[in-house]
Design a protein around this nucleic acid. Structure first.
Lengths: 258, 258
DNA sequence: CAGCTCGAAATGTACGCACATTTAAGCTAA
DNA sequence: TTAGCTTAAATGTGCGTACATTTCGAGCTG
């Protein structure tokens, strides 16, 4: 093991320096296989076990590593289940909870260029994008119109996937190893256009949610998504408390016409 | 100081027992004036300073106390700013960020009974409720219609408050000491009725958010709220990431007609 | 009496040791 | 080959010490 050095006269506590260095190495993927044990770190950095534990305590509090008695600490698995996908995840988990079956009709799946979308992903206008357009059903009635753009360089393996029943994120993770870890979304209330209303078979007086999302993975833009959800069938639900903050919960999806 | 005892053979770690006992005493208001120092706790509980610090570390991580070098720890002030109020907080902070001035027109402020609302608050149908109805402006144009019901037994001191410029939660906290610590809300996309549209001066093709909220304080239902927000002027914004989960951020409020 | 200095007291950092408890690997025996 | 046991290694808990750094008040001084 190479001997690492910490600056003992920098004013910053040793454990903080150690913690920051570990975060840096961790983000660099250095510990994807095994995370060094406490005693190994004591040797490497030439500090006491107490100091090492102080640094590891912070890392655990931040959810970066997990540790158990008698076994080596490990890098925390990407919390894929924890808060996967905001409003859309809430939407589709609500459908499942309602007992309705989900399926999609793929209306388009190809590669094309779109300057406007590319710009939103911080890409060159001419960069080819994989485009997927689906009409999503809950039960026998349409629920949402879903359109996604991803850089073709990343998402090309998805071209021959069958999206009638599988989720985009599962397929993306399975075929490319990519997983979104950050995103931003805007949610608007709109009245659908006649064309959209016909597609979704909306009653004439219904409103809709219009959701725009930009998803990234390790700070690289990965998807731009626009989803139009029938407002007469879906409600967003959320809980908040002083401890847990704001969390979307499973909402309500009603049968059409209810 | 009375000598406190911890069970050294209970299987539970000493620091955890200590932490839980401190939480209990803290909730009982025992430390409202001063929080005991580390050495005092060492004396009281007959454990080492290391163990005491381990317990205090957890309390600090939970935000219950704050400590600084050279001064005694103190009970943390109620985290009022931390995650105040979900979608509605997001709405009004967005208005502020946009530079528009906010004010309200109070359309009703009285005490009445409403069986339907009372039931939603788990109260008897005949229980009197304080009812507040406001039309909220951002700039010169209406933004939202806001209706709140609170148990009169708690909220009666609010009857003579002026709600044109102050927030309900501030007034509630100032006059009764009550602070919401938990809530649940449903967000729907709707088309406003002609009456609502006239009130809000909506363009005819605009949709709206309909937000229902039930707020509690220490598990007691405190408010039922219904807010109708113009969809042509407001968009909910949210960010999510593996670390921080799902958080509403400051969204966009546009000028009317934009 | 105001202002300053200094020291006591408190928390923060860092080191050391010992033992308990759990996991996982290696060894042995059927 | 496999099941079961033993043992080494790792983390969790708990104690002790020492010194650094900051705060705050007591006491002195001008």
């Amino acid at each position: 093991m190479t001997e690492r050095r910490l600056d003992r006269s920098s004013g910053q506590p040793l454990w903080k320096q150690l913690q920051q260095d570990l975060v840096r190495r961790l983000r660099g993927g250095e510990f994807d296989e095994v995370f060094p044990g406490e005693l190994a770190l004591v040797e490497d950095y030439q500090v006491s076990r107490h100091t090492v534990r102080q640094a590891l305590t912070k890392l655990r509090a931040d959810g970066l590593i997990v540790a158990e008695r008698g076994r080596q600490p490990r890098v925390a698995t990407a919390p894929e289940i924890r808060q996967p996908m905001g409003a859309l995840y809430s939407l589709f988990s609500s459908v499942e909870a309602s007992g309705l079956t989900q399926h999609s009709v793929v209306r388009a799946l190809d590669i094309r260029a779109d300057g406007v979308i590319a710009a939103r992903l911080d890409l060159e206008e001419s960069i080819p994008l994989l485009y997927l357009e689906r009409l999503r059903f809950a039960g026998d009635e349409p629920l949402a119109l879903d359109r996604v753009w991803l850089p073709a360089s990343l998402a090309e393996p998805l071209l021959d996937a069958d999206f009638t029943h599988t989720s985009l994120y599962n397929e993306l993770a399975a075929r490319t190893g990519l997983r979104l870890d950050h995103g931003r979304e805007d949610i608007r209330a709109v009245v659908p256009t006649p064309a959209e209303r016909a597609l979704l078979r909306c009653p004439p007086e219904a409103a809709a949610f219009s959701i725009n999302r930009r998803g990234t993975s390790h700070n690289n833009p990965v998807e731009w998504r626009h989803t139009l959800v029938r407002g007469d069938r879906f409600a967003l639900s959320a809980e908040f408390s002083a401890n847990t903050g704001y969390r979307l919960t499973t909402g309500a999806v009603t049968h059409a016409g209810a």
